[in-house]
């Protein structure tokens, strides 16, 4: 592809975006929190940012231990099956329960392998909750900005938003965005296109995802 395939507009994504994705991924955190703050979803995200950062900043843990903690961390929180089903788009309707289950497994391994590959890029950034917006009851967008201690550019910080479902004490993060780009949406567009090109073969998509996950694991 040409350099300009990403113009106009990749610039906000450059460099810092990879870090932000890593950080956002790291912040998709553990289990349920019974938040008592006035904006429970915001408190939930802020707490989980701290949990995610504590994994990344834990100097006493080896890289392998961090990976394991991180995997546990993500699985404890996210509804991977729900996200996986969403990324199948229109093809979910025709997929059998067995195919959906196998796809969810492959998607999970792939997503975690991609997130883990960003570990080495982390260099002290953090996320600060700046507010939230309720789309519907139980469906909230929590807005954060990335604070990068190494960034001397003077530019406004990168915006990272989380979509949080749930109310009261039980929440789940189902997607996140960097500079307005939502990851699960992008995955759905990609997978739908792949399936459209390959006669809707979910088996082929699964094998492709498995291969990508293997490649990531082999490199890191």
């Amino acid at each position: 592809m040409s350099a300009t395939d990403l113009t106009p507009g990749i610039l906000p994504l450059a460099r810092r975006a990879i870090l932000a994705f890593a950080l956002a991924a790291a912040s998709l955190a553990v289990a349920t929190t019974s938040a008592t703050a006035s904006a429970p979803a915001e408190a939930y995200v802020q707490n989980n940012v701290q949990t995610g950062l504590s994994i990344l900043n834990n100097r006493s843990a080896s890289t392998d231990q961090k990976r394991e903690q991180f995997e546990h961390f993500i699985l404890g929180l996210t509804d991977m099956k729900r996200i996986a089903n969403f990324t199948l788009g229109q093809y979910k309707r025709t997929a059998s329960p067995q195919e959906q289950e196998a796809f969810a497994q492959a998607f999970q391994s792939y997503a975690i392998a991609v997130y883990q590959s960003y570990f080495s890029k982390y260099s002290g950034q953090t996320l600060k909750v700046t507010g939230s917006q309720q789309r519907a009851p139980g469906d909230t967008i929590v807005q954060t900005v990335m604070i990068d201690p190494n960034d001397k550019s003077g530019q406004p910080p990168l915006e990272v938003d989380f979509r949080v479902l749930g109310e009261g004490g039980k929440f789940v993060v189902i997607d996140f965005s960097v500079s307005g780009i939502w990851l699960a949406l992008e995955e759905r567009d990609q997978f739908s296109s792949f399936l459209g090109q390959n006669n809707g073969s979910i088996a082929l998509l699964i094998s492709h995802l498995k291969e990508l996950a293997r490649n990531y694991k082999a490199e890191h």
Binding site: M1, A3, I10, L13, V114, S179, G180, Q190
Partner: peptide
Amino acid sequence: TYSTVQGIQRSSVDYYASLRSLYRQMRNN
């Protein structure tokens, strides 16, 4: 954008569709 593009290419099942989605989302933003 070198490393960002590399990251997108490596993680893509369908790079063309990924780019299309990213372009549209970025433009809307």
